[in-house]
């Protein structure tokens, strides 16, 4: 077993372990942290595939941005998981049977000799100055320009949907309206009333 293969199995094992822990630990913060570990290990697997750019983006975007945000939300929400686990025992036997069948089927398919390494030509080694970032950029803006733009539209829709579902102007809240404050005129504020003085009796 070569060193590369050893590394692959090591990180793959940690990845599977971390993914399992994400759904089994009781504390949601721990679950989020295990997800971070899972992302890190998949990034390492990508590094082994010589996809350096994707590996770094995975760490930067998912671990650096998405998961940090996730952690903040999880910490602030104070989710009580106990009620969500109700009925877990009740559904467990059915779940185990179905899960076992699926694992067995997947094992049969993935373990079949169809995916044997000798069926596939080895990936040609790249020269030292090969830039996969450049290759990726080239493909994204030429061959995959349509899916790329569609992904952008999906992000736009996500923004529109999120804002339309959450932004609301409640009537009766006492918030400031700066535009109206600026536009106000002195005669709107002060009203001079002529009051006749009265004689003391």
């Amino acid at each position: 077993m070569g060193f590369e293969k050893f590394l692959f199995y090591l990180f793959a094992a940690i990845l599977v372990f971390a993914a399992l822990r994400v759904i089994t630990v009781r504390n949601p913060v721990h679950a989020a942290l295990f997800l971070v570990l899972a992302f890190f290990n998949s990034a390492v697997l990508w590094l082994l595939l010589e996809a350096e750019f994707l590996a770094i983006v995975l760490v930067l975007v998912y671990v650096g941005a998405v998961m940090v945000l996730f952690l903040f939300v999880v910490m602030m929400l104070d989710v009580n998981v106990a009620p969500m686990r109700e009925g877990f025992i009740h559904y467990l036997p059915v779940g185990i049977v179905i899960g076992l069948i699926m694992v067995l089927e997947m094992g049969l398919v993935v373990g079949s000799d169809f995916f044997d390494a000798d069926h596939f030509a080895a990936v040609a080694a790249h020269p030292a100055d090969f830039s996969d970032t450049k290759e990726l950029g080239g493909l994204l803006y030429t061959q995959y320009v349509l899916p790329f733009e569609l992904a952008a539209v999906i992000l736009l829709v996500a923004i529109v949907a999120a804002i339309s579902l959450t932004l609301r102007r409640r009537p009766g809240t006492k918030h400031q309206a700066p535009a109206q404050q600026v536009l106000v005129r002195s005669q709107d504020r002060v009203r001079l009333v002529q009051v006749d003085s009265e004689e003391k009796q």
Partner: peptide, 25 residues
């Protein structure tokens, strides 16, 4: 014409539908 476009179109449609179903806040 490819599985990628099918998936992206499907997600674009589904995201809009999820938001529309919840439109009455």
């Amino acid at each position: 014409g490819s599985l990628l476009t099918i998936y992206l179109g499907l997600e674009l449609l589904s995201l809009c539908l999820y938001a529309l179903v919840a439109f009455d806040r």
